[in-house]
Each structure stands twice: as C-alpha cells, then as structure tokens.
Design a protein around this nucleic acid. Structure first.
Length: 109
DNA sequence: CCGTTGACGCCAT
DNA sequence: TATGGCGCCAACG
C-alpha cells in the first residue's frame, strides 16, 4: 500500500462516519489493514484541516478521550462540534462511548 | 543522513 | 484498576 493511499483511505472512512457518532484512530487504522499505524491516522487528521467534508472531530482515541482537541482552531472547538451533534462530552471525554462508537468495519459489510 | 516528535494502543507490572 | 514502557512510522529540522 502506498502512503498516499493511506491518507486517501483514512479520509474516505472519516467522511462516512455518521452524524452524531464517533470512532477511534485505531479502528480506522485496523479497517485499512494497518493496525499498527493508528498514530498515522492522527497525523492524517492534522493534515485534514483544509478539508471541510472530513469530520475530524468524530475521531477520538480508544477510550473516547478527545486527544486531538488541541489541534483545532480553539481548544474547545472539537468538543463544541460533538455537543452540537447531540453527543454528551464531559471532562474531554465522550460519554456513552460504547453506544456511540461506529465501527468502520461496518462499511465493508 | 539522523535524531526527535507525536490527534495511538498494546502489554507487562 | 492504574501507570509506565515501548513499538509503531511518516514528518520535520
């Protein structure tokens, strides 16, 4: 797999995350077939700021923690966007994470 | 060319 | 249960 494809596929999956749902960096990496490259998913998100149709705020870490919040325009932007979608966020962490979690694998099935 | 740096996650303790 | 260590690997200086 080309590293260019990696970015492309990451964006393709993130675009499919349903409104009001979230997923994790690791889940995305795994669905692409590179389970060890979760860090690269985060890197891809950092480079997706000028891509309006890529909802990077719906990607959190495997514990539902908003680890990427510092990279948005303001530290509260990520949290605000999630709350706006009806997701309850407390202490920078998505509440009811298990129920809101969207598995990218469901895209394949 | 090479050491450092992370929007991460698994594993050992 | 909670930390800490470490593998991961593309950017960056």
């Amino acid at each position: 797999m080309d590293k260019q494809d990696f970015y492309t596929q990451v964006y393709a999956i993130v675009k499919e995350i349903p409104y009001g749902r979230v997923t994790s960096y690791g889940a995305i990496a795994k669905s692409i077939g590179m389970p060890k490259s979760s860090r690269m998913v985060g890197y891809a998100m950092n480079a997706s700021h000028d891509m309006p149709d890529v909802p990077a705020h719906r990607v959190v870490n495997r514990n539902g923690l908003l680890t990427g919040r510092m990279h948005f325009a303001t530290p509260n932007q990520m949290e605000d966007l999630l709350v706006k979608e009806g997701i309850l966020v407390k202490e920078h962490q998505v509440q009811n994470f298990e129920a809101l979690f969207w598995d990218p694998f469901s895209l394949i099935n």
